[in-house]
Amino acid sequence: MPIRRLKSDRSTQSSPRNLATVSTLPTVKAMRDCFERYLSLTIADGNASVDTIKTYRNRTSQFLSWCRERELYPALITRENIKEYRKNLVDGAKTSPTIRLSLISIKHFYTACLAEKLVKDNPVIGVKAPREKREVASTIKYLTQSELQQIFDSVAPILKIRGDKTKQVQVLRDRILLACMALQGCRSVEMFRANWSDISQSGNQHYLKLDGKNSIRTVMLRTDLAKEMALYRQVRQKNKEKFTAQSPLIISLSNRRYGQRLSRSGISHIVNGYLEKCNLKHTDLERSLSPHSLRHTAGTLSLQRGSSLREVQDLLGHSDPKTTTIYTHV
């Protein structure tokens, strides 16, 4: 195991961290390598998504950079240091969910190091993210029925697009993306991962399998949405696109990446573009809409139309019914 030897000088012996009792410490590289093994073998029982691993790695790297800037050695971090880092995030105007995710990532980092005996304890245990002062229901930002209609109307009508096949693909792609998120309650990550092979049919009913947050679910597609998907495929085929089981549902239309899977940031860019176009992105000081607001829209409008909580829970794929109850307070 790579180690770093500490000098036994006076400053070390008088240190409040009592470093004189420690002769060797693991290098930061050894701790990072340990964490990488943990991410690939332990998180989600070895089946963590690429996005999850990337998030944990990035949040931990930010913490290690903070340690380096303050000349704090990661193997000697204390609970007080973790609290200082939490305060740094709070001062940086990070939200409670963001801080919570950072602490979870760092906790996993030290769990991995503790398992390989690189550290003596996990300093993150007992340190929690600050509570949000606002009610949970106030975080639910959604579009009204008329605003949602405004969004769809802003997408060029299909029948008026002639000659330009790429434009036809764009119009259909965007309509399908918006409909899946705002009417079917799909998450951005689910649309990012969706393939053509995830669409199935039984009789006259079409279904879409969604690979989401630690679970796979199947939703029944609206009839009008299923028809647009069929037209979308036809137009892409006319563009000489060859379909395989892994052909993405939502594709990039850029010259260099045409036909490849559109990134999550690309999906967000499309949704935010239509929100901006309709002047709905920031309507007042209290409401700022995001791509996830379309999912909130699906749940809220479904309840307003008379659906039961159980039906909305199934629509949104909530494993815990308590998560769905927040929509009753909107």
Rank of each mutant, 00 (worst) to 15 (best):
8 S>C: 08
10 R>K: 14
15 S>Y: 12
18 N>W: 03
21 T>Y: 09
21 T>P: 03
24 T>L: 12
40 S>P: 00
41 L>H: 14
41 L>A: 14
42 T>I: 15
42 T>A: 14
46 G>P: 05
55 T>Y: 03
57 R>Q: 11
60 T>A: 02
61 S>A: 03
64 L>I: 05
70 R>D: 04
71 E>K: 05
71 E>Y: 06
72 L>G: 10
81 N>Y: 12
82 I>F: 02
87 K>V: 04
90 V>A: 03
102 S>P: 06
103 L>M: 09
104 I>P: 11
105 S>C: 06
105 S>I: 06
109 F>Q: 02
111 T>Y: 08
112 A>L: 07
114 L>E: 13
119 V>G: 03
120 K>F: 14
121 D>C: 13
121 D>M: 14
138 S>W: 00
139 T>M: 11
152 F>A: 08
152 F>W: 05
155 V>Y: 02
156 A>M: 13
161 I>S: 12
162 R>P: 00
168 Q>C: 06
176 I>L: 10
180 C>D: 01
186 C>N: 10
196 W>A: 02
203 G>V: 07
210 L>N: 07
214 N>T: 12
214 N>W: 03
218 T>N: 00
219 V>P: 02
220 M>G: 04
221 L>K: 03
221 L>F: 05
222 R>W: 09
225 L>R: 09
228 E>W: 01
228 E>K: 07
228 E>M: 12
231 L>C: 06
233 R>V: 09
238 K>C: 00
239 N>H: 11
241 E>R: 10
243 F>S: 05
245 A>K: 13
247 S>K: 11
248 P>F: 08
253 L>V: 07
260 Q>D: 12
274 Y>K: 07
275 L>I: 13
276 E>N: 13
293 S>I: 06
295 R>A: 03
296 H>I: 02
297 T>S: 04
301 L>G: 04
302 S>G: 15
307 S>P: 03
307 S>D: 05
308 S>A: 08
310 R>Y: 13
315 L>D: 08
315 L>T: 03
319 S>K: 15
320 D>Q: 02
329 H>K: 11
329 H>L: 05
